[in-house]
Amino acid sequence: MTKPVVWISRRLSDATLERAARDYDVIVNTDDTLSSADDIVGMSAKVDAIIPCHSELFSAEVAARLDPRLKIIANHSVGVDHCDLPALKARGITITNTPDVLSDATAEIAMLLMLGAARHAVEGDDLVRSGNWDFWSPSFMVGKQTTGARLGIIGMGRVGQAFARKALGFDMEIHYYNRSRLSEDKEQGAIFHETIEGLLSVADFLSLHCPATSETTGLMNADRFALLPDGAVVVNTARGALVDEVALLEALKSGKLSAVGLDCFAVEPGGNPAFAAYKNIFMLPHIGSATTRTRDAMGFRALDNLDAFFAGKTPKDQL
Rank of each mutant, 00 (worst) to 15 (best):
E215N: 14
M141K: 12
P211H: 07
R179N: 05
M43C: 06
A308Y: 00
D263I: 10
I154H: 09
P68M: 06
N236D: 11
A105N: 02
R224V: 12
F309T: 03
G143H: 07
A226R: 05
P273E: 05
A149W: 00
I154N: 01
L200V: 12
L306S: 06
A297G: 00
L257D: 09
A203W: 08
P285S: 03
A64Y: 02
D304E: 14
K316E: 15
V80C: 13
V202Y: 03
G169D: 09
V26K: 03
R11P: 00
F135K: 14
A290W: 05
E61S: 14
S214H: 12
S254I: 00
H76C: 01
K316T: 15
H120L: 09
I174D: 06
V235I: 15
G116Y: 11
E108W: 03
D134L: 13
A311E: 10
T98V: 09
V202W: 03
I154A: 02
G240T: 10
P4S: 11
D296E: 10
P52H: 11
G261I: 12
T106G: 01
E61W: 08
L242H: 08
L34K: 07
G42D: 10
K313Q: 15
T314M: 12
T216Q: 07
M111I: 15
H175A: 08
S130T: 14
S254R: 00
E18T: 15
S207I: 02
K144I: 05
T314W: 01
V26E: 03
M114T: 07
L113G: 00
H54Q: 13
L168F: 03
G79H: 02
A117M: 07
T98Y: 04
K316I: 13
G255K: 11
A107R: 06
N97R: 10
T98P: 01
D296L: 00
S44E: 05
K316G: 12
A274V: 11
H82Y: 05
E123A: 15
Y278M: 08
E18C: 00
D25K: 11
H209L: 09
A167W: 07
E184H: 11
A110D: 09
A203H: 02
A117Q: 04
L257C: 13
T216W: 05
N272T: 13
I51D: 05
G131C: 01
R91L: 08
A121E: 04
C264K: 07
Y177P: 00
E245L: 10
D296V: 01
G143T: 01
G261M: 07
T96H: 10
H120I: 05
E173F: 01
M43K: 14
S9T: 15
F282M: 14
F135W: 13
D100G: 07
D204M: 04
V159D: 09
D31I: 00
V6F: 06
L115R: 07
R11Q: 12
S35W: 14
L34R: 13
I196D: 08
G143W: 02
M298Y: 05
E108K: 07
